[in-house]
Design a protein around this nucleic acid. Structure first.
Lengths: 346, 346
DNA sequence: GGATGCATCTAAAACGTTTTATGCGAGGAC
DNA sequence: GTCCTCGCATAAAACGTTTTAGATGCATCC
């Protein structure tokens, strides 16, 4: 089989120089209309496709974005990735995907090195911060010779960080439960070293304090986002916090696990226990009782990441000018059956 | 800021030629131990990272795999992608991701051209076949100057196709319902132009025929995989097929929608209506009633795709030698509450 | 009539690697 | 001593583009 045609083949057939072909294709310099047409005709005819490797090598821009993600089995991360991909492809970027399976132990340096090696124009780090080496990792990120946008991370100076306002989500969910007459609201939290987890907990704490209730450690049970862990956490909560009459779960899957445990205990939802989840997975509106939850603009978050990165690459945005408060998208509380108590507050 | 170091910088510092540095790094030719160590030391010292673009350009191999996927918001496709990524990164491949948002109208040629342009070593086409232009698309795929592995496609001569045995899954689910005494089993099918959908339907038909029941059109309602569509399909089924006493839904989300509709109609599950879903999403074991379903080896499917592709790239596998039957993974029926009738068959 | 400007095109360098072809010296066979 | 072989190292070519620095011809300007 013969080699694919190169720009030289096009040039020869069109009786022009390779530079002219290049100029026709990139549009960086004007070319006479007649020549332009002739070249394009030949390109069509022999099916020439420029080699991106060669383009990237000399132009020092690969039109490529490295994405570091994890937890694609969960609703949130996979939606964010879809948003990233849509915006990236609309802007002419190609995505290089790196999944992290063990966020706690990942060698960030190695992952970054791998992407740099591929000459990515920028990096979106969408893997949740886990573990203690935060400063270390952020230092690695700011040393990288390419712009970086972080998702799901605490603010870091000199780095662009965007997120959805998890504290606000936790706050709204808890306030809604309080407003509906629930008194003793337990928290089924996500893994404590996830940033999103911490923020949702802070929102829950804030709402409790505003209502004059000091949150206690025994009101919290930790899960790992899975339904199983939600079920287990619910039993644990009933043991350490017997007065429990409502639960805010940090995601819908754990909420479903809790719902399941409640059913096993013959507890009525929402009469005996009110429940609010987080994410608004498609199933949330169709399980019984229909699950109240917090919906997040995940697709938009992914798109925003690419927009920021593109601005960074183009030099229209300085990492130092990052304004944290401006880069928080707002979640939306969706009230359904699982949290609607008809009895009035005592 | 200074340019990143190149192989020339290493060579100069180590007082050897660039070829020697290259040989040390690639290991393609022997280098004296002393020289080797000196070079590696310098590499460490100045933090040299080879430029993959340059490597790929001359070696004509980018160590890159193009993945075309869609429906990442669903359980199946996202798990398959995770499997692909794991196996690919273990084998030293980098993934280029292309998502398709409208599988029905996608310009396959353009997507393939984009990947070829990036000099991918191979392509995994994991977007479900939709629409009528099957032959056309497969022709485009076989014209591509890189090996291709197809997932979720009908068999095609000259192309490697792998899948999970959807017909078997549909068959087992339906047979299980029949064995549990259900007589009139409706089908909530996925979109009729998805290959997986068709195969699951064929399995359902096969089981019915084996039981002496000729499947009728009115026993089928089509959904779009979403819980909403499952709910709608259930109502439709009750209208066109009033004797309905069980449902096989082509995925768990639609099964959940059906469950929801059944609850609204005050039908007991499984006493009045038995239900089996498909996928075994994590929530399936935690909703009430616990959902019987068909579990698929999705991660393994993704890994297998990369293994096949790697063999193809290495020349250890010929597309023409593709043996369809050997490339079907087997699903597993998971029996839970939603399909377990205690009454004996009439 | 020479200088200037403009539009169009081009030759050659550059990008950072791997690959190819070759060189060199030492050691062994004869 | 001469001829081979072998282990190690190297210079130069090659990969397929974009970019740089000119070149050419022609009209315009003074």
């Amino acid at each position: 089989m013969s080699k694919p045609p190169t720009i030289h083949d096009v040039a020869k057939r069109a009786q022009v120089s390779v530079s002219t072909v290049s100029n026709v294709l990139t549009g960086k310099r004007p070319v006479a209309e007649a020549t332009r047409r002739r070249v394009l005709e030949i390109v069509q005819e022999i099916g020439f496709r420029p080699n991106r490797l060669a383009q990237g090598l000399v132009s020092r821009s690969s039109q490529t974005i490295g994405v570091v993600a994890s937890g694609l089995e969960y609703f949130g991360p996979s939606r964010v990735l879809v948003g990233i991909e849509q915006e990236a492809s609309e802007r002419g970027y190609t995505l290089i995907l790196n999944l992290i399976h063990e966020p706690a132990t990942v060698d960030a340096e190695a992952v970054l090195a791998h992407l740099i090696t591929h000459q990515v124009d920028g990096i979106i780090w969408a893997s949740p911060h886990i573990g203690k080496h935060l400063e270390q990792r952020q230092e690695a990120l700011s040393r990288v010779p390419a712009p970086v946008v972080l998702i799901n991370h605490p603010n870091a100076s000199g780095l662009i960080v965007i997120d959805i306002d998890n504290q606000r989500g936790g706050y709204e969910a808890t306030r809604h439960l309080l407003a509906n007459g629930f008194q003793n609201i337990g928290l089924i939290a996500g893994p404590p070293d996830w940033h999103a987890s911490q923020m949702r907990r802070q929102g829950w704490e804030l709402a409790l304090r505003e209502a004059g209730k000091e949150p206690e450690q025994r009101q919290i049970a930790y899960g790992d986002w899975s339904p199983q862990s939600g079920e287990r956490a619910f039993y644990q909560l009933r043991a350490t916090f017997p007065e429990l009459d409502a639960v805010f779960a940090a995601n819908d899957q754990m909420a479903i696990g809790a719902l399941c445990a409640a059913a096993d205990l013959n507890l009525r939802i929402p009469e005996d226990i009110g429940i609010v989840g987080y994410d608004d997975i498609p199933e949330a509106a169709f399980i019984r009782p229909r699950l109240s939850t917090v919906r997040q603009p995940l697709l938009e978050l992914g798109r925003l990441a690419v927009q920021k990165l593109d601005a960074l690459i183009a030099g229209n945005l300085q990492p130092s000018s990052a304004n944290a408060s401006g880069d928080l998208l707002q979640p939306l509380l969706i009230v359904r059956e699982s949290s609607q108590l008809r009895r009035s507050p005592e």
